[in-house]
Write a protein that binds this DNA or RNA. Structure first.
Lengths: 335, 335
DNA sequence: CTGTTAGCGCTTTCAT
DNA sequence: ATGAAAGCGCTAACAG
C-alpha cells in the first residue's frame, strides 16, 4: 500500500481534457461552464479523488480563510464550552469553522497563541482575555481582523465585547433576599480577582446598600487561592458569631460548595447561586441563570457583522440574566 | 484609519537589506544565520509588524499544516467537550492546534464536514462517528492522514479507535448489585441504539446471566425517542407489579432522571449510574466513572503516533472505567 | 553563512 | 464558454 500523492486541479484538467482554469471554475462554482464540460470535470475529479486545496485557494485569494479562532484559558470549564458551542453553531451557518486554542490560563502564553492563530490567517478572533493587556492586537485589528472579547472586556484595545449582566443579575438576586427580610447575607467568590466576580460583588454591595447595609466586609469571602475550597468559605461564614441568614455564590464552584454544606442545615440558610447547574432543579436551588450559548452566538455574530461591515462601530453587548426561584432563595430569615 | 496590507517576507527582506530566504531562515528557525543578520531581520520584522503566512508556508511544504480536526455530533454534550479538552491539551504539547467541527448529529452531514476539513489539509482526523459508514475515508487514510475513531469504532474503515470499557464497566456495576443480593435490576437507556449503550446493555445482561437471571427484557427500558424522559422510564419500572430493587442507568441523562425520581423513595431503590457528574458525591450516587479527558488525550496520541510512524498497525484502545461507591449502589434489597 | 531560481496549487487577469 | 500566463507568500534545491 504505497502512499500516493494527492490529485491537483491540473491532474483533473488533464484527465478531463480541459484547462485547469475550467476545473477551477467548476469547484469555485463560478458559473460560465457548460453542463457537458462540468459533468466531465466532475467525473474526472471523482476518479482521481480530487479535493481542492484550500491552502492554495486561500493564499491566492489574499489570505482569506474560512476559519475563526476562539481563544480560551481553560477548556475544561463547562461554561467556556457552552460558549464555544454557541460560536461554532453560529459560524457553521455561514460555512466557517472554528479553531479552538487554549492558553492554559497563562497570561504569558496569550500573545503567543494569538500570534500563531494570526499566522494561520483566521478571519476573526474571539477571545476570553486572560492577560492584563490586549493592546498587542491593535495592529491586527487595524488590518481588518474583527476582534471580539468574550465574558470580559479587553484591556487597552478597542474591540467588540459580549459580557453577562453580572452586576444587575447579582443585585437582583440579593434584592430578592432583602425583600423577604434578609440583611445578613454572605457572598463567596473564588477566584475573586476576575472581572466577572468583581462585577457580581459590586452588584451584591449595591443591593445591600439599597437597604442600608453598608458594612459588608464581614460577610464577604473573597479568595483567589484555588486550594481554598468553597466549602471552607461557607463554613467560615456559618461559624461567625453573628452568622448570615442567607448566602449567595459568585459562581458555579461556590454553588457546589454551598450545596454540600448547606443541605440538611437546621435552621436552613437561604442560598442563591450564580450560574445554573445540572440537578439544581431537583435540589431546589435558586440561581441566577443565563443563556451561555447565546453568549457565544452573540460573539460570533458581532465578528461576522464586522466582517461584513469593517467600518461598523464597536459594540459592548450584555447578555441578560434571570433569577430562577426554586426554593432555596425563598427561605425566610429565622424569627 | 486605512486598512493597510500585511507585510511579507520580501518586505522584511528589503528593509533589512537581505534576501527573503534569509528572513525565511530566521522565522523557520533553520539556523545558519549569523547573530547580526538575525537581529536586523527581527528588527525589520517588528517594525513592519510581520507575521509569517502559514498558508503559504504550508502550501510550499507540501500541504502539511499544523492543525488536527475533531469532528463531533453535538458540542453541547459535556462529555464531548471534555474529550475535546484532552485532545487539545495533547496537541498543544506538540504545537498543533485543534479545529472543531460539528455535524449536528446528522449522519448526512458527516462526509460533507469531513470533506471540508480535508480541503483545509488537517494533519489528522479524529472523529466520533455518526454515520453508518466511514468507508469514504479510506482514500484519505491511504494518503497518510491518520484517522482515529473516538468513543465508538468506525464502520467499514480500518482506523485506530479509542472507546470506553463500556461492557466491563457496566458488568462490574451490576455485579456489585447482585453481590449484595439484588436480582431484579432495571436498566434504562436513551438513546439506546448507539454503540456505547448497546455495549453497556450487553454488560448488564452478562452480569445478570452470571447469577442465573436470563429473562431481563421486562427490566429493560430502551428508548430512542428523546422526548421520552428518563424520569418516565424509571417510573414505569417502579410501576411494575414486581418492581426492581435496583436500577442502573446507561448514561448521564438517565442518572439525572433516576436521581429525580428515586430520592426520597421509601423503600429506597439502589442505583448506579454510568458517567460521573457534578454533585454526585454530595447526593451519594454511586457511578461507573472514567477519565474523559484521557479518552481525548489517547485519541490525539494515537494520531500523533501514526503521524510519526505511518506504517504502524491500527490499534483499538479501551479506556478503563471504575466503580465509585457512594451509597446509592450499596442499598440492600428489601427483606 | 547567504542568495537565486523555481514552484507548491490555486485564482486573477486578460485574451479569445 | 474556455484558456494562457502570471503570481499569492513562502521554502526546497541548489548554488556560491
Amino acid at each position: 500500500m504505497t502512499t500516493q500523492s494527492r490529485a491537483t486541479l491540473a491532474d483533473v484538467a488533464r484527465l478531463a481534457g480541459v484547462s485547469s482554469k475550467t476545473v477551477s471554475r467548476v469547484f469555485a462554482e463560478a458559473g460560465n461552464v457548460s453542463a457537458d464540460t462540468r459533468e466531465q470535470v466532475l467525473v474526472a475529479a471523482k476518479r482521481l479523488r480530487f479535493r481542492p486545496n484550500n491552502l492554495a485557494r486561500s493564499l491566492r485569494r489574499g489570505g482569506v480563510t474560512n476559519t475563526v479562532a476562539f481563544v480560551i484559558g481553560d477548556l475544561t470549564n463547562p461554561f467556556y464550552f457552552h460558549v464555544a458551542a454557541g460560536i461554532e453553531r453560529e459560524l457553521a451557518l455561514r460555512g466557517l469553522t472554528m479553531v479552538l486554542a487554549t492558553t492554559d490560563d497563562s497570561p504569558d502564553s496569550e500573545e503567543r497563541v494569538v500570534d500563531a492563530l494570526i499566522s494561520q490567517r483566521v478571519r476573526a478572533l474571539l477571545l476570553i482575555p486572560i492577560a492584563d493587556d490586549q493592546s498587542y492586537l491593535e495592529g491586527e485589528r487595524q488590518l481588518g481582523t474583527p476582534v471580539v472579547s468574550v465574558d470580559r472586556p479587553a484591556r487597552n484595545l478597542l474591540a467588540d465585547s459580549v459580557v453577562l449582566q453580572n452586576r444587575l443579575g447579582m443585585a437582583e438576586a440579593v434584592r430578592s433576599l432583602t425583600a423577604i427580610g434578609h440583611r445578613k447575607i454572605g457572598f463567596i467568590s473564588n477566584p475573586s480577582a476576575m472581572y466577572t466576580q468583581r462585577e457580581r460583588l459590586a452588584g451584591y454591595r449595591e443591593a445591600l446598600r439599597e437597604v442600608g447595609v453598608v458594612e459588608t466586609a464581614q460577610w464577604e469571602r473573597l479568595d483567589d487561592d484555588p486550594d481554598i475550597s468553597p466549602e471552607l468559605a461557607v463554613q467560615s461564614l456559618l461559624d461567625l458569631p453573628d452568622s448570615p441568614t442567607a448566602i449567595v455564590a459568585g459562581n458555579n464552584r461556590g454553588s457546589a460548595g454551598a450545596v454540600r454544606v448547606l443541605r440538611n442545615l437546621k435552621p436552613p440558610v437561604a442560598f442563591i447561586g450564580f450560574d445554573d447547574f445540572e440537578l439544581a432543579d431537583a435540589l431546589g436551588i435558586s440561581v441566577v441563570a443565563y443563556d451561555t450559548m447565546e453568549l457565544g452566538r452573540t460573539a460570533a455574530r458581532l465578528a461576522l457583522d464586522h466582517l461584513a461591515d469593517p467600518g461598523a462601530f464597536t459594540q459592548q453587548i450584555e447578555i441578560p440574566t434571570r433569577l430562577i426561584h426554586r426554593g432555596s432563595g425563598e427561605i425566610l430569615p429565622p424569627r
